[in-house]
């Protein structure tokens, strides 16, 4: 039937749009970044100073931005793992039904709080606490950002880890319990190891969220582009650099193109994390 064919093509076209958008993202990031290769030259990106606005010498070294993002992400990951994985384990293995019906929507609410509001809370409430707790000159540091980002990634980690824990066959658990293991032993020695690939994937997707988060780091990490790995220093992440500087830059300038390079690096990192996590999840589902 003609009508059926037409509808099928329209639906096909919609599905193809997703592919088109991904292609366009890569094309347009590349297009705007391209001019940097000939002038001032791509090797300028591989240096340790980011000084994009200067009367004497503009420098576009990405290293401090990459270490900034790296530092915040690693700290946030270390913080989110115990909370996220414990939360998922508790909700799926130990919580009563009533508890579960309260906990799950509540944690989903956290996922819905806009990042700018979390950043606002961090600026007003958390950063003074960090400042006085560690005796610093400023509360706007990598660790402040990491604490908030960990919080924002926790719902992702919990919901995906929980799926992984739920899909461990109940026969595993029953066998363990029948052999006389306690519920706790069963959880830690049987369920968690069996769900591990899924839990690792959950952590990686959480990391993807953290690397890509913009507003929180822009508001609470102090935005100093320097090469450091101390949690108590101010840092400038890749996302915050784009957000802060793109508004004031002249279209087509070296600085403008350099910011698109930052975007490309960011895109490649999150793309890699995502694909790896999906591979893990797929392997896991096949069992």
């Amino acid at each position: 039937m003609l009508k059926d064919k037409v509808i099928q093509y329209v639906l096909w076209g919609s599905a193809a749009t997703s592919i088109l958008i991904v292609a366009l993202i890569f094309i347009f990031l590349g297009k705007e970044a391209f001019s940097f290769i000939s002038e001032p030259g791509i090797e300028k990106l591989f240096s340790s100073r980011w000084v994009p606005v200067s009367f004497t010498l503009e420098q576009f070294g990405l290293y401090p931005l990459i270490t900034g993002s790296f530092l915040v992400t690693i700290l946030a990951t270390i913080i989110m793992i115990p909370f996220g994985v414990t939360g998922a384990l508790y909700i799926s293995e130990f919580a009563s039904n009533t508890e579960r019906e309260f906990l799950k929507p509540f944690i989903e609410i956290l996922a819905g709080i806009p990042s700018v509001v979390i950043g606002f809370f961090g600026l007003l409430v958390l950063s003074p606490i960090v400042k006085s707790l560690f005796g610093l000159n400023t509360g706007l540091t990598a660790i402040t950002g990491a604490l908030l980002l960990a919080l924002m990634a926790i719902p992702t980690v919990i919901s995906i880890s929980e799926d992984a824990i739920q899909s461990v066959p109940s026969s595993y658990k029953e066998a363990s319990l029948a052999l006389g293991a306690s519920p706790l032993q069963t959880s830690f020695r049987v369920v968690v190891p069996a769900a591990l690939p899924g839990i690792i994937a959950a952590i990686m997707l959480g990391m993807g969220r953290v690397v890509g988060e913009t507003m929180v780091v822009l508001m609470v990490t102090g935005n100093t582009a320097k090469l450091t790995l101390s949690p108590f220093d101010s840092v400038r992440t890749m996302t915050a650099t784009i957000a802060a500087e793109m508004g004031e830059v002249a279209f087509g300038s070296s600085h403008y193109a350099a910011l698109f390079w930052v975007g490309i690096v960011l895109m490649l990192i999150t793309f890699g994390l995502n694909v790896l996590a999906q591979q893990l999840l797929k392997k896991y589902q096949m069992r």
Binding site: F28, L29, L205, G208, E213, G263, M267, T270, F271
Partner: peptide, 18 residues
């Protein structure tokens, strides 16, 4: 899957460019 992982600021860059 790729789109789901693209950082929101990169969407901003894309929107700016396109």
């Amino acid at each position: 899957i790729t789109l789901a992982g693209v950082p929101s600021i990169v969407f901003g860059l894309f929107g700016l460019g396109l």
